[in-house]
Design a protein around this nucleic acid. Structure first.
Length: 829
RNA sequence: GGGGAUGUGGUGGAAUUGGUAGACACGCUAGCCUUAGGAGCUAGUGAGGCAACUCGUGAAGGUUCAAGUCCUUUCAUCCCCACCA
């Protein structure tokens, strides 16, 4: 008590009386200086073919909206920057590129509304983004910057599209597409959320249009297999696998009575074929008209009409009742020759499998509901734990299945399929949930699809030497109501000649979706200015593939899957040297508003990172706050107070460094092993944490170091080798996170070396160890002993401890456990 | 219905192999200092208790000398997909 009082007095005396003689930490005064220097000197230029180990740090490039950077951007690019700077300090040739994914509807809508060309609006926004990136101190190689709307870029997007076209992987088809009546454009399945267009939230309609599609389904298996070769978080890999939705089953042919055409169905449970008591086909099924009998025609027609009038949203409603209608037709179950009725119902989807199913009500919940509602027969063919009156999808032992009785489900599956094969009435079949990628958009602001339509030759590729097909300048960007792109109204652009026969022909007027440019942009960073190829082979060989790709979880089934598909195709064509584009993928979590909800303009809870910098906290505080907030992949609310805390911490770093610089002028020589211990310990911890992307704990380790140093400086002079090492190391460890203050103070210290520090084990060991003593599992005492104490000595000391002696009293010790250097556990009773 | 994740103080979050739960920070309390700043310093801060001590990681069981961590059951929240046969 008394001694504590004294040491408090000592503390107070040794704290510099007048802190004001030192320059205050004021990031505004030096951050812009460093940013300008980095810009002017192109400090972060990645060098082609350099001998150092290469490291490609990729972050998803932004859509340059008029609103500037938001917190999500700042998190992503700050984390990328921390890694890029760290790897550079470790001596690697780091490529940390940035570009702009600038085609898209917001700019087009902005252009329509304000009568400003999208090219102009884009240029303005890009300039704004560039400035904001700079003000955050990001270490990007700007010499390789790309912009998807630049003709010198989309020339290669078009060229790559033509490779798909030549291979038959880009094709046109009349398809029922998701149509957004507000944006007046077609959408990919992935862009429809709850029956609404994910961008504008308007209800999506169905429209039948001739569209360009990319045959991503051809790569379904490869896209699954490829996941085995890369380091993706399991939730990303699982989500992609789930999205591709591979199911193994069989296609079974049912002969029909009324039609010459057979009905094909897909099932994953051919073992339940004997339980198929009826068939159901989708309302859009091509055989509908063929099958209906005269006396059912009117009821079928009215059902089809009612289905048509339903919106997608209604059809997907959770509480929907099963609806349907009997066609009057019958089909023959191939395994037992039974006549089963054919129904039409909208719970069967035309887009999956064959658009027809065999209904096994006893073993499929949907069929069960339908059978109950329309009083159709239910036949149990699998015996398992479930009650006979229930529907069960579980496997078991076959019953009511003729010669397959008493087989297990999986055996029956095999045998029945092989029998069907022999009969020529079925075979194994694999189906995917994944559909081909609808690649047409009916908009101005996108890459024109480089195709010319000729009456004689059909769709013809624009010759390579005529690329790019540039967007014409137009007066109006408004989409048309007919479902045609606004480009279709520009006759002088549309009318051209056929490259094959020279006769008059018309240009394709659809443009590509904005996923096109982003499907290959990382490749362009390897050779951003090449006007002969999309990237030179030797540069691809040097840089590919991306070592770490950081981005949003929301892109898992869109951009990330699309670009893997493109890359795999390019690999097959010998255009790229690696099978997969990205060696490792990580997804950062979302930063929510302080109230735990998503930040949104309409709620007015958006935090603007630029404002925080301008308020005087500076870029370093913002960067630290983001990295410290939570594990990088965790969704977490923003905390404005946290910025103050980081600013305070940087202030402490600033002050202790300045104190060190002051004291080194006149203090006496004095060394401290404690200073070295905390320094080496922190190097070890921060290095380990950075390798594991545990940014928040790395920062807390640096904070602990600073706190320790503050305590240590009270009793030891700062003028010593150890202190110099400690302060310089502190700045090095801090520099990936807060590069401005680290560079500023290092330059004041005239510390030129910027290599990552190494720790030395010998400084980590301390002379004493603290041993915890547990009695019956509870911590009862702590001992300080020399580190080299043997087990005997430790246990002996534990048993002699006053407190322990008291607790053991007369009781017997049943067991003594010693965990080296940590604890002694005594079991008494 | 399918897939994935997460539950720890007032808050954000720590906790290599099971080994001192709550690091680091925010906030709060008390005090000090001052050129009154978005500053700095000291002490305290899971709950209950004067204390010894007891309780405590969504809940309930279990394994173990020892469980936030392993096992079983269960509840809650979030994300993605969804009439996918």
């Amino acid at each position: 008590m008394f001694s504590t009082f004294l040491s408090n007095l000592a503390d107070i005396r040794l704290i510099p009386y007048n802190v004001s003689i030192m320059k205050r930490y004021s990031p505004k005064e030096f951050e812009p200086k460093w940013q300008k220097k980095w810009q002017d000197e192109e400090s972060f230029k990645a060098i082609d073919f350099d001998d150092r180990q290469k490291f490609v740090m990729l972050t998803e490039f932004p859509y340059p909206s008029g609103d500037g950077l938001h917190m999500g951007h700042v998190r992503e690019y700050t984390l990328g920057d921390i890694i890029a700077r760290y790897k550079r300090h470790q001596g690697m040739n780091v490529l940390y590129p940035m570009g702009y994914d600038a085609f898209g509807l917001p700019t087009e809508n902005y252009a329509i509304k304000n009568k400003i060309a999208p090219q102009v609006a884009t240029a303005t926004n890009v300039g704004n983004f560039q400035k904001q990136f700079q003000s955050l101190g990001f270490s990007m190689d700007w010499s390789r910057s790309v912009n998807t709307t630049d003709p010198s870029y989309y020339r290669w997007t078009q060229w790559l599209f033509l490779q798909f076209f030549k291979e038959g992987l880009a094709y046109q088809k009349e398809v029922s597409i998701n149509w957004c009546p507000f944006c007046k454009t077609g959408l990919a399945n992935e862009e429809v959320v709850n029956g609404r267009h994910e961008r504008c939230e308007n209800l999506v309609e169905k429209k039948f249009l001739k569209q360009w599609l990319l045959k991503i389904t051809k790569y379904a298996d490869r896209l699954i297999e490829g996941l085995g070769d890369v380091d993706y978080p399991s939730r990303v890999a699982d989500q992609q696998i789930n999205w591709i939705g591979k199911s193994v089953g069989a296609e079974v042919i049912f002969k029909t009575e009324n039609s010459n055409e057979d009905l094909k169905v897909f099932t994953t449970r051919p073992d339940t074929l004997f339980g198929a008591t009826f068939l159901v086909i989708a309302p859009e099924h091509p055989l509908v008209q063929d099958l209906i009998t005269q006396d059912h025609k009117s009821s079928v027609d009215s059902y089809l009409k009612s289905v048509q009038s339903k919106s997608d949203l209604e059809r997907q409603d959770d509480n929907r009742e099963k609806t349907g209608v009997f066609t009057g037709a019958y089909a023959i179950n191939p395994v037992n020759g039974e006549k089963v009725p054919v129904w039409i119902a909208d719970y069967v989807l035309m887009g999956y499998g064959t658009g027809a199913i065999m209904a096994v009500p006893a073993h499929d919940m949907r069929d069960w509901e339908f059978a109950k509602k329309f009083d159709l027969p239910i036949k149990r063919v699998v015996k398992n734990d479930a009650s006979d009156d229930d529907c069960t999808a579980d496997e078991g032992i076959m019953i009511n299945s003729g010669k397959f009785d008493s087989l297990k489900s999986d055996e029956a599956r095999e045998k029945i399929v092989s029998e069907l094969k022999d009969l020529g009435l079925g075979e194994e079949k694999i189906n995917y949930r994944l559909r081909d990628w609808i690649f047409s958009r009916q908009h101005y602001w996108g890459e024109p699809i480089p195709i010319i339509h000729c009456e004689k030759h059909g769709a013809v590729a624009v010759p390579e030497d005529q690329l790019p097909v540039t967007l014409p300048e137009v007066e109006h960007y408004e989409p048309t109501d007919t479902g045609e792109s606004p480009l279709s109204k520009i006759d002088e652009w549309v009318n051209t000649t056929c490259p094959m026969c020279g006769k008059p022909a018309k240009r394709e007027t659809d443009t590509m979706p904005n996923w096109a440019g982003s499907s290959w942009y990382y490749l362009r960073y390897y050779d951003a200015h090449n006007d002969k190829e999309f990237a030179a082979k030797d540069k691809l060989a040097y840089w590919a593939d991306v070592d770490l790709y950081l981005g949003g979880m929301e892109h898992t089934t869109m951009h990330l899957l699309y670009s893997r598909f493109w890359h795999q195709f390019f690999y097959d064509k010998g255009l790229v040297p690696t099978k997969e584009p990205y060696k490792a993928r990580r997804g950062q979590g979302i930063i929510l508003a302080t109230d735990g909800t998503k930040m949104s303009k309409s709620k007015g809870n958006v935090v603007n990172p630029m404002e925080i910098i301008e308020q005087g906290y500076g870029a370093d505080s913002v960067r630290l706050t983001i990295a410290f907030l939570a594990p990088y992949d965790q969704t977490t609310p923003w905390s404005p107070e946290s910025v103050t805390g980081m600013y305070r911490f940087l202030n402490r770093v600033w002050n202790i460094t300045n104190e060190f610089m002051e004291s080194s002028k006149n203090d006496s020589e004095n060394d401290s092993t404690e200073v070295l211990r905390i320094t080496h310990q922190t190097i070890k911890k921060v290095t380990h944490d950075l390798d594991n992307m545990s940014f928040n704990t790395a920062i807390s380790a640096i904070m602990e170091m600073v706190n320790e140093l503050y305590k240590l400086k009270v009793n030891s002079s700062m003028k010593s080798e150890s202190w110099g090492f400690a302060i310089r190391t502190l700045l090095k460890l801090l520099s990936p996170f807060a590069p401005h203050i680290a560079n500023e103070l290092s330059s004041q210290l005239k510390s030129e070396d910027d290599s990552w520090p190494n720790y030395d084990e010998k400084y980590l060991t301390s002379e004493v160890m603290e041993i915890v003593i547990q009695v019956n599992g509870k911590v009862r005492a702590k001992l300080s002993l020399p580190v080299d104490s043997s087990e005997e000595i430790v246990i002996d000391a534990a048993l002699k401890n006053e407190r322990i002696v008291e607790l053991i009293d007369q009781k017997t010790i049943h067991k003594k456990i010693y965990i080296k250097g940590k604890l002694v556990s005594l079991v008494v009773g």
